[in-house]
Simulated assay, not measured.
Amino acid sequence: MIHLKNSTLMIVLACFSIAACKNGQNSKKTTSENSIVYTGTASVSQGSATVVTQNIFECDRGRKAPIGTSTATDGSKWTVPAEANFTNETFPFASDLFNPCTKVEYASTDEALAALDGKDIIEVDADGEIITAYVFADNYFEMYINGVPVGKDNVPFTQFNSNIVRFKVNTPFTIAMKLVDWEENSGLGSEANRGQAFHPGDGGMVAVFKNAEGDIIATTDSNWKAQTFYTAPLKDLSCASEEGALRLSKTCSTEDSNDGTSYFALHWKIPSNWQSADFDDNEWPNATEFSNKTIGVDNKPAYTNFIDVFDNSQADAQFIWSTNVILDNEVIVRYTVN
Rank of each mutant, 00 (worst) to 15 (best):
L4W: 07
K5N: 14
L13G: 12
L13A: 10
L13V: 12
C15Y: 02
F16M: 10
S17C: 11
A19Q: 12
K22G: 06
K28W: 13
T31M: 12
S35Y: 12
S45R: 10
Q46I: 08
A49W: 03
A49L: 02
T50C: 00
V52I: 15
V52S: 11
A65M: 03
G68Y: 01
S70V: 04
K77Y: 02
T79L: 14
E89D: 09
D96C: 11
F98E: 00
N99C: 13
T102W: 02
S108E: 06
D110F: 01
L113W: 08
A114P: 08
G118F: 05
I121V: 15
I122S: 14
E123L: 00
A126F: 00
Y134I: 05
Y134E: 08
V135I: 15
D138W: 01
N139C: 11
N139K: 05
Y144W: 11
P149R: 01
K152M: 08
N163W: 09
I164C: 07
V165D: 12
R166I: 00
K168V: 05
T171K: 14
T171S: 13
T174D: 02
L188G: 07
S190D: 06
N193M: 06
R194E: 15
R194W: 15
Q196R: 11
D202Y: 01
G203L: 06
V206S: 09
E213C: 02
G214S: 07
T220M: 07
Q227W: 06
Q227F: 02
F229Q: 04
Y230K: 05
T231L: 08
T231F: 10
S238K: 04
A240T: 03
S241H: 04
S241C: 05
E243L: 11
G244R: 12
L246S: 10
K250Y: 04
S253T: 15
T254A: 09
D256R: 03
G260I: 09
G260M: 09
F264D: 07
W268G: 06
K269R: 08
W274Y: 13
F279D: 03
D280C: 04
D281W: 06
N282H: 08
T288P: 03
V297N: 06
N299F: 11
Y303Q: 03
N312V: 05
A315T: 10
F319T: 02
I320Q: 04
E330D: 09
I332P: 10
Y335N: 07
